[in-house]
Structures are given as C-alpha cells and as structure tokens.
Amino acid sequence: MKKALVAALLIIISIPMLIAVAAMPPHGDADSPVHTHVSARYIEHGEEEAGAENLVTGVLLNYRGLDTAGEVIVIFTALMAAFAVLITHPGRGEESGPTTAALDPEPGTEPESDSKAPPPISPVVSFMVRLLTPFTTLFAIYVILNGHVTPGGGFQGGAILGGMFIALTIVLGEDKVRTLLPRRAAPWMQGAAVFAFVAIGVIGAATTGYFLGYPTDASLHLVRELMMVVIEIGIGLGGAAIFATIFLQMEAE
C-alpha cells in the first residue's frame, strides 16, 4: 500500500518534469535563451573584459564575483555549522583539560574505543604517500595559480590539497600533520577565502568605486591578474583547510 502510494506520487511528480523537459529547446540550439542572453557577450568579450583566458574563471571571479563571494561565505558558514555538531570539546587544546572532562558525556565509552585501535599503517603505503606528497602539492599549487589560464582554480586545487592533507593524516597521524596546520592558525586558514574576497573587494571598492571592481584599463592588466590570483590562493587555502579540519575533527576522539 505504502509502496504503491510512493510509486503513484513519483509518477505524478515526474509528469510535469517530463513535460518541462519536452518543452526545452533542442540541445546545442544557438537560439535557446541560454545562448542569446549574456553568454554570447561573455564568449565574445570575456577575455579582454574579465582578464582571464579561462572563461570559467573570468565568469566566476569577475562577472559573477559577488555570487562567488557569497558562495564562499556560505561554505564557510556551513563549516561553522558542521563544527558546532562535530566539536565535543573545545579546540583550544591542552589548557582546557577540566572542561573536556566535564563536557564528555559518557566516560565509560573510552576503553571501548581504545580496544579498537587501528592496525599500524603499512610501510609501503606510508612511503608512497610521503613520496607523492611533494608532487601532489606541486600539482595543487599549479592548479590554483594557473586557474585563470587552464581549467582549474582555487576550488579544484584546494580540494586536491585537502585530499593530500587527509592522506598525510592517515599515514603520519594527527600530531605530525598538526604542525602543518596549527590549531591557532587553522581558523585563519579556514577563513582565507572570505578574507581574500573581502580584501580584494575593498581594494576594488577603493580604486574603482564598486565592491570587487577590477581595473578595466588595459595597462593595469597585470594588477587585475594579480587580484584574481590572490582570490584563487585564498579560495585554495581556505578550501584545503576546511576539508582537512573537517576530517581531523571527525577523526578526533
């Protein structure tokens, strides 16, 4: 009965969706609204107007810069929400010993988790991760810095960097990785994307009068590129720090 109801509901929902799909213009149609509105201008003038060879980056950071800034702030806020759930004791570290004990709801659960200690990491895997780490880091930096020329950018490079961090944490343990991402520096790293956007936005507001405004003069081409690269670095570092800390927080006892 319940299943039949679900199936009926799904069919009822799917009918308007299929009608909407049938009403869509054919794929690749040059006269469809998507291609006649703003994207024609982006494709024609994007390179000299936005200052990025990679059109996607141009749209993300220049034409739709405010949207990307908002997106970055949303991600940062989501991280804060996740931390509110994940953190069971203050992240301040050693000096908050008594508070930790007070906040720990069931002290009896500790021995059980100790008995399930993970097996030692294979030396082969450990060696491979440590061997590939410099190359991965180089690739991530390349993706971040080259985002305005080739596919890639802050989000992609940051995800690669964060993945490398997670692999290193699994292999080396939390303590050693914490030297790369100290507790005091972590919040600043997580907010790097927001800081970069606000800083560049304020600089743009001071020079051009618009928040996130880029200099449009052709002679200031390098300045514009530098502003984009700063934002990309901020997004990359912020993304990597967010991924790494979520993982560290989930792994932490």
């Binding site: 097996p119 294979s122 082969v124 895997v125 491979m128 061997l131 590939l132």
Partner: peptide, 20 residues
Amino acid sequence: ALVLLNGPTIGHALARAAHR
C-alpha cells in the same frame, strides 16, 4: 609513472587490510 606506482600500492593495501 603515477599509475605504475599507485596500482601495486593499492593492491598491497587492500590485501594487507584483508589479511589483518
């Protein structure tokens, strides 16, 4: 080079985890 390094490592890690 990456594939030649990674493939055997993954195989080793899988078999080791199963054995453990």
